[in-house]
Nucleic acid binder design. Structure first.
Length: 546
RNA sequence: GCUCUCGUAGCUCAAAUGGAUAGAGCAACAGACUUCUAAUCUGUAGGUUAUAGGUUCGAGUCCUAUCGAGAGCGCCA
């Protein structure tokens, strides 16, 4: 919450403490139309002798704060509140400044990166969108954030590609990214069908683990081709990363890590492989029987790497639902191996399906590249308004791809319905952009700058919009504490809709009273700031015209 | 077989660590434009929260069972 609400909630919790009650007082959205917020913490004590005394004391503290101008109690114990707009207009800005007193955490975002060699496909979109949004949200509330794309640049997929180049006599130096994209599926198929190829790929994987120079040189070439291609792609989608580390970067830490775990009896031999000695079902495999490394091996070493080289309070892994077992095993192991007590969370998300609910495929049946989804959306949006410039269309395309991805809870699978998502009405990226452009134009058209207003002049719609704007931090708090951007995405729709009502309801150009115009302008300006900052938190850039 | 996630309006989804009368969008129907860009707004209708029990002042939310859907389950990542 912003400083205003947070300070009040803290002092209210203090009042409970005086009655020896541990209550973390929270403001909830009101269930009743007349009110903005409610407090529920008192309800459970309504049979106690001290109830009335406590309730009176709480109300008194709320009154002193001036945050609310209507404070109603009832016998059940609910406290119903209306925001004091005139007071809050000088207290709340809906900018990062409102959150300056937040306790600061250093957070690493691990994007469970794309695999080099494989093109970016639609499945990568959610990691990128959710990751960018959470990164921006935590930036906004003054946490220290670090993103690491954490490339899948190690292990069997790479070994398969190298084996394929070897088998087909392809000179790695002449590779380009489009060839690489074709090679991986072929190599993967060969691996599953050709035993000799499989054995060779496994051997190459082991050689890479051991630092074999010849193999490493080929690997370096493949990686640089792939990274260059990824960088170009990310530019289109407006994604950036602080670190471009990968699984390969921790390879040198692994032998020491394994050795020390063996010494501490934390890992043991099992059918030739090394497994965690922790009693778990299923067993946690740490290395293969030929000694080469696995997904969890590099992820464990990455924890050590980050402790030593970056330092952090929290690490968020933005990876899809299906890998939940892996992360459960990883997090269990961190504790069991006594690596650290830091906070690790799997930010899991559901599958992106096509409009019929089936996995996304190209017409030929292959995995659908992300660029294809982008192009389809781009064409669709171009047809909404033929006068738009290419840069605006591409910004709108990104808005649609981002907003539609974040509007539903990340944990559920969702269907990508292009027609629905590019609609000008409803909860879409187009609608929220339009509202923001409309506000911008309105403010610029009024022949007067907003200056201080002593008293706001508000009709019912103005009040509703303003209340919602003052509640920005409530939605931000939910998104930040649960790492769920959809609360803010829905909020953005709600304020946009209320702004459009505000716009239609009373024409500012018809108002003659200057104080009234000023009051209207204040609301429009606060909407614009809030809308654009919410967009920032979602990873959407506001367009200037449309 | 074992484990995990889920089941809310015709469709797509919300509902802060259990709180008052379960809310939105789309689609449907009925309205509002010589406009501060109608790319908008207003209104109507739509529910036994899969089913059956349980926990308590109170359950969409917690527990148990059943039915249904999806995902995962040591040498892939």
């Amino acid at each position: 919450m912003n400083n205003v609400f947070k300070n009040l909630a803290d002092s209210l919790s203090g009042e409970f403490k005086k009655f020896n009650l541990e209550e973390n007082v929270q403001f909830s959205l009101s269930k009743l139309d007349k009110y903005d917020l409610q407090i529920n913490n008192l309800v459970k004590y309504n049979q106690k002798i001290f109830f009335t005394k406590l309730q009176d004391r709480i109300i008194e503290v709320i009154k002193e704060s001036k945050v609310f101008n209507t404070i109603d109690k009832n016998e059940v114990g609910f406290i119903n509140l209306c925001l004091n707009h005139n007071f809050l207009k000088n207290e709340i800005t809906n900018t990062s400044n409102d959150f300056i007193n937040n306790k600061q955490y250093k957070i690493i975002f691990d994007y469970g990166g794309p695999n080099i060699g494989k093109p970016l496909h639609v499945g990568h979109m959610r990691t990128l969108n959710i990751g960018r949004s959470l990164y921006n949200i935590h930036t906004f509330i003054n946490n220290k954030v670090i993103s690491d794309i954490h490339l899948g640049d190690w292990g069997m997929p790479i070994a398969q590609i190298i084996s394929y180049l070897e088998k087909e006599n392809i000179d790695p130096k002449k590779l380009d990214s489009s060839q690489l994209e074709i090679i991986y599926p072929k190599a993967s198929e060969e691996y599953s069908q050709n035993n000799k190829f499989k054995t060779r790929a496994q051997a190459i994987n082991k050689l890479l683990n051991e630092g074999d120079e010849t193999q490493l040189n080929i690997w370096k070439i493949i990686k640089s081709v792939s990274v260059k291609n990824l960088e170009e792609n990310f530019k289109v989608f407006n994604h950036k990363f602080d670190y471009w580390l990968g699984e390969s970067d921790v390879n040198d830490l692994i032998p020491g890590m394994i050795e020390s775990l063996i010494k501490k009896n934390k890992i043991i031999k099992d059918e030739g492989a090394l497994i965690s000695a922790e009693d778990s079902d299923p067993k946690i495999l740490i290395t293969k029987s030929d000694g080469s490394y696995l997904y969890i091996t590099t992820d464990l070493a990455t924890i050590l790497y980050r402790q030593q080289n970056i330092g952090y309070d929290k690490a968020f892994y933005i990876v899809d639902n299906r890998q939940s077992l892996h992360f459960k095993q990883l997090f269990d192991s961190i504790k069991y191996f006594e690596f650290n007590d830091l906070y690790h969370e799997h930010i899991s998300y559901g599958t992106l399906n096509d409009s019929k609910g089936n996995p996304f495929k190209t017409r030929e049946g292959g995995t659908k590249p992300l660029s294809e989804l982008y192009e389809e959306s781009y064409e669709y949006i171009k047809n909404i308004n033929k006068k738009l410039s290419t840069s605006i269309i591409s910004q709108l395309t990104n808005s649609v791809l981002t907003f539609s991805d974040l509007i539903t809870n990340r944990k559920t699978d969702y269907k990508f319905d292009l027609e629905k998502f590019t609609s000008v009405n409803g909860k879409t990226g187009i609608y929220v952009q339009y509202s923001q452009v409309r506000a911008n134009k309105l403010i610029n058209n009024i022949d007067m700058q907003y200056k201080e207003v002593n008293d706001l002049i508000l009709n019912e719609v103005d009040k509703q919009l303003l209340s919602k704007l003052f509640l920005f931090s409530y939605y931000l708090e939910q998104s930040a504490s649960l790492n769920e951007p959809h609360h803010l995405a829905n909020y953005l729709y709600e304020i946009s809709n209320l702004f459009n009502q505000f716009y239609e309801n009373e024409k500012i150009s018809n108002i003659t009273d200057l104080n009234h115009v000023s009051s209207k302008l204040y609301i429009a300006n606060l909407f614009l700031t809030t809308s654009q900052n919410t967009m920032f938190c979602l990873g959407i850039s506001p367009v200037t015209e449309m």
